[in-house]
Amino acid sequence: MTQFLQQLTNGLSIGSVYALMAVGYSLVYSIMNFSNFAHGGVIMLGAYFGFFGLTTFKLPFAAAFALATAGTALVAIVVERVAYKPLRDRKAPFLYFIISAMGASMFLENFVIATIGPNPKPYPPIIPREPIALGDLALGRLDLIMFIVSAACLTLLVLFIDRTRLGKAIQASAYNMKASALMGINTDSVVILVFALGGFLAGVAGVLYGMKYMVYPTIGAITLKSFIAAVFGGLGSLPGAVLGSVLLGVIETLVAGYLSSQYRDLIAFVILIGVLIVRPTGIMGKAVEDKA
């Protein structure tokens, strides 16, 4: 039982970081109806921004964190302006957006490989390694921080979308851009806002993930998992993205703990695919249209 609870808490912690990534994905998807594959690149940059903030610039953690998240929000906006806006203005088919997204992703990755180098770098040890004992459970401090920070960010995001005027504009635009524009909503600003929010969350996720593992140029590949988690939960649905991610994190950790860590991803994905076969819209998704 203790071992199970131990795995469960680990799973919740990594799942919550997946959720940060998946929500960024889902937000953009809900407005633009395409999968922003450049998101992984932005997460990767967030990990590097945090790393250089702490090492090269010797900033205190909070400042490095702020720098990283502001940086990724900005990068996400630039990606939108450069890679997607020209396509939006021309009302290009969705396939073009996907190709552009992949191009942006490759650019970011190779830019980092060319300028910083391909080798993984460890974050400096800011969080003490020794766990906090809670009865028989040993909670890793970093795991706890990952969970708390992710949960706090997601809660703030939900409140923002639910309670504020701009949040309403996001909801309306997610439903229908034209109808929203007819209400006087500047839908172009909504797109920028959504990329900024997704970029901010990507920065948070990048720093947390980098602290847990390491920083390397292909770290963004992890978003494949959060992407699948978002699909699993129901693309475009934020609660779905969170639920799918947390489930993925927990399933993964349980499989690694009880079966084998080599089969971790394999089994996790088989379960996810199984769910999608039974429920193609994902757990909380709406009716499926053929969107890329």
Binding site: Y175, K178, A179, A181, L182, N186, T187
Partner: peptide, 21 residues
């Protein structure tokens, strides 16, 4: 720009209604 047209005082009931379902 559509939002500025609304601000200027023109509203538009679109073809197909487009209510927020």
């Amino acid at each position: 720009r559509p939002d500025r047209v609304v601000k200027a005082g023109i509203c538009h009931v679109p073809e197909g209604r487009l209510v927020f379902a």
